[in-house]
């Protein structure tokens, strides 16, 4: 394969850094705002150099009940991801290996459910939750996140499974392997990067979900998105406190993304280059 000219490589590299810088800038600005005073945070001349204060961050952890919200976020995002995979893997397997003439329609229909604004179904969902006693419960939130993420999980898993050659599974069947053995010893290991990418994406989507978490929880099951929302004030200065809350809210998922970036990139590009 011929290497691109040095100038092209340099331009692409510079472009990559610029795009990366633009993407990262809001997070950087949020991080430095979180260690400013409220007066510094609203300064119309943006301040880059100042004496940092960790009062806002300390107040969040001491008085903001951060750990309660963080625990809820971990439970509902990991719980809903596990449930979405448990339902999504068999569904994607069936569609990838035993398609019917309606499989494509079914997949499109599943995806179309994501196109409806959540607020459109708020009242019926709220009534169902009320009658089932699921309001302000973690199990209720796990349920709604599972349903919200299932279409994306099935779509991703379906495309990853389709990249695993049928012949391998056929050979295993000829050797007498049953469904569970094919699943556990062949399909899941072969599609592991794709499954990991699906899991990471659904964790991130669940972690960041705001609409349902604010509308269906009050205090017991409220996750970190509700924690952030509580710092917005109609009258008064709140940017430094809000930034501190946001920083603490995204810190765990940022760390997870950082640690698993290799698997995430590998999974998301799995099958992209044949």
């Amino acid at each position: 394969m011929r290497r691109a000219p040095a100038a092209t490589r340099l331009s692409l590299s510079v472009l990559g850094w610029i795009v990366g810088g633009i993407t990262f800038f809001p997070i950087f600005w949020m991080a430095i705002t979180s260690v400013k005073t409220e007066a510094q945070a609203i300064s119309s001349t943006p301040l880059l150099f100042f004496r940092p204060t960790f009062e806002n961050l300390a107040n969040m952890i001491d008085g903001g009940d951060y750990l309660h919200f963080a625990t809820n976020s971990v439970i509902v995002s990991f719980g809903s991801t596990a449930a979405a995979l448990l339902l999504g893997i068999p569904a994607a397997y069936a569609m990838a290996y035993y398609p019917t003439h309606r499989t494509k329609d079914l997949l499109l229909w599943m995806l179309s459910t994501k196109m409806m604004p959540s607020v459109g179904v708020l009242v019926p969902v709220y009534l169902i939750f009320r009658d089932a006693g699921l309001l302000d419960t973690r199990i209720g939130l796990v349920g709604i996140y599972t349903l919200a993420n299932l279409p994306i999980a099935v779509w991703m898993l379906y495309s990853f499974f389709r990249d695993v050659p049928h012949e391998i599974l056929e050979a295993a069947r000829m050797d007498g392997a049953g469904f569970l053995q094919q699943m556990l010893w062949l399909l899941l290991p072969l599609a592991a990067p794709g499954i990991a990418a699906t899991a990471l994406l659904t964790i991130i989507l669940s972690w960041n979900e705001t609409f349902w978490s604010i509308n269906l929880t009050s205090s017991d099951a409220a996750p970190l998105t509700a924690f952030i929302a509580s710092f917005s004030s109609p009258e008064g200065l709140f940017w430094a406190r809000l930034s501190a809350a946001s920083l603490l809210a995204i810190a765990p998922i940022l760390a997870l993304g950082w640690m698993t970036q290799r698997q995430l990139v590998r999974g998301l590009t799995f099958g992209a280059v044949k």
Partner: peptide, 22 residues
């Protein structure tokens, strides 16, 4: 038990809660 919300979100939450008799 305290639930602190942004002003417009609070209106939406309260309206939903009252209208559905929750």
């Amino acid at each position: 038990h305290w639930v602190t919300l942004e002003e417009n979100v609070l209106r939406q939450r309260v309206t939903t809660d009252i209208a559905t008799h929750s």
